[in-house]
Design a protein around this nucleic acid. Sequence first.
DNA 1: CAGATATGACAAC
DNA 2: TTGTCCTATCTGG
Length: 278
Amino acid sequence: MPEGHTIHRLAASHRSWFARARVSAASPQGRFAAGAGWLSGRRLRDTEAYGKHLLHHFAGGRTLHVHLGLYGRFSDGPAPAPPPVGQVRLRLVSDRHWLDLRGPAACELLDPPAVAALRDRLGADPLRDDADPDRAYQRISRRATPLAALLLDQSIVAGPGLVYVSEVLFRAGIAPTSPGRELTGPAWQELWRDLCALMKEGCASGRIDTVHSAHEPAAMGRAPRVDRHGGEVYVYRRAGQPCLVCDTEVRRAGLAGRHSYWCPSCQPEVSGRDRPGS
DNA sequence: CAGATATGACAAC
DNA sequence: TTGTCCTATCTGG
């Protein structure tokens, strides 16, 4: 259940535990046995996160690619490793640390061209220095597709998931159903800046907190939703509850196969006809 | 203990 | 738009 900030945190942790170390690898579950065989005994050169994708670059020219999807999880601890429990797809062990991976959507070895192809199909990652938000805006501003769906499209913006998208749109006062082409350049600049700030903070803290006194003082003193990870949010999974700012009932609606959450009062619908100057 | 759910993505219709 | 992947956890009976 990770968004990009979690993957960037994992990349940093894995680097600190395993980079430059020789690892042994196993697939107790058996579904990654061949890959684990190749990995075993090799040295991890470096780790990298790109959006929700985690990369372990190994000496020998191949890269372990992990995407956690909806269910994937890592667990870890100091050596020695305990007996594996449950469906462990991959276990990596150094002389200091162990790491277990369960339930990933992707766990595979890539050669350099495949890694390049992966990077090519990903959009601007708010947590990477090489992000190109102008290119993302070009793709957003040409489409009538709802903004929330465009922001969830990993080939446009890589990393944010439902929580960050729902929350950043609330903070911007924009309905998730607003067509991409109605987003002005300055509004995108502000949206991107806020997304970067929120995700950097989430990367540092390990939780998603979007309710800050500096953003909306009226929300202070009210009870935001606190999720399992301790994060405090305005609208995500708060359907039917009062908006923290104006008390209007938070709404939920299907959007691009997912659910989006928004406050219809703080995030009014926009349409081309209503847009000033058009 | 069955069933729903979950910070996601893709294929097939 | 729906179904499938895939695993653990939470919910209610």
